[in-house]
Design a protein around this nucleic acid. Structure first.
Length: 291
DNA sequence: GCGGCTA
């Protein structure tokens, strides 16, 4: 019934993008009690993101998580699942220009986790995840979905390049990232009873290989975000440093990435004696827990 | 077959 006036022209220049042109990489569904959660891993030229929607009979609410935040969400849900009931505190997570608030609540229906997204130009949106009746099964199921999606996102990101164990590498990024061809693969997302996943036929594999690649490393109190991107000038790697509320970035054209890698390797080499005891202590890549 | 949540 929608008078979709000229359906192709719907992308007229407004700030409200509906993500209609975005590529769906992965869709999953999770039912917790009578709520339905939709997880959509999507990608557009600006990058990759995870859309999480909560649907009830009368309510629909959605949060958008940048791809760099998926592993943080996984970490946080692990925290809420694994910590003792009395040790649960509110958390907040800042990503780009968004802040996500995690708060525990309880009423006669039970315990729940409220996840709110606050961004500059958009109304705050919230989803509420029931803890579940026994052993936080709602949160645990939610966590498992996040783990699957995090894994899948990394599969899309680096098809063939996990040659070395990440615990010994400062940055597991090879110098030929540009060659992004995802071979026809049987992806190992196997048995999930209540989660329906379908691997979308990838319409533009080169784009997927070239964009939306993200990594995060932690060093002391700082976080460094590595994001591949491209514009009309070509492809680049953006490295952002986040410490407290300060943030700054450098933009490295891919043409310089190999030299960059060599220079970094040089300094790793000459400081090896000093840093090798630190790897794994306060300098390490963020590796989300398996399963 | 719920129901939580500042806009």
């Amino acid at each position: 019934m929608e008078g979709n006036s000229g359906g192709s022209g719907s992308g007229s220049g407004g700030g409200a993008e509906r993500g209609g042109n975005d590529v769906e990489l992965l869709c999953k569904t999770l039912q917790v009690e009578h709520k339905l959660f939709y997880f959509d891993l999507k990608e557009n030229p600006r990058g990759r993101y995870l859309k999480i929607s909560e649907k009830t009979s009368a309510t629909r609410s959605t949060i958008i998580v940048p791809s760099s935040g998926i592993s943080w969400f996984l970490d946080l849900f692990n925290y809420y699942v694994n910590s003792d009931e009395h040790d649960l505190f509110s958390k907040e997570l800042q990503l780009d220009s968004k802040v996500f608030y995690f708060d525990i609540g309880e009423n006669r229906r039970g315990r729940f986790l409220k996840v709110s997204e606050a961004s500059v130009s958009r109304n705050r949106s919230t989803i509420i995840v029931p803890a579940g009746s026994t052993r936080d099964e709602g949160w645990a199921a939610f966590r498992n979905i996040l783990a699957d999606i995090n894994e899948a996102s990394r599969l899309f990101t680096l098809p063939n390049q996990q040659s070395s164990e990440p615990s010994e590498d400062l940055v597991g990024l090879s110098d030929d990232v540009g060659a992004g061809f995802i071979s026809g693969h049987n992806q190992p997302t196997s048995n999930s009873d209540l989660s329906v996943d379908r691997s979308v036929e990838l319409p533009a594999q080169e784009e997927i290989g070239n964009m939306g690649v993200s990594k995060v490393i932690r060093a002391d109190q700082k976080r460094f975000f590595f994001d591949l991107g491209s514009n009309n000038r070509g492809h680049f790697l953006r490295i952002s440093e986040v410490a407290g509320s300060d943030r700054s970035s450098i933009i490295l054209p891919l043409s310089g990435l190999k030299q960059f890698h060599e220079v970094v390797g040089h300094f790793v080499e000459i400081t090896k004696d000093r840093i090798e005891g630190m790897v794994g202590a306060n300098v390490r890549t963020v590796d989300p827990p398996q399963r």
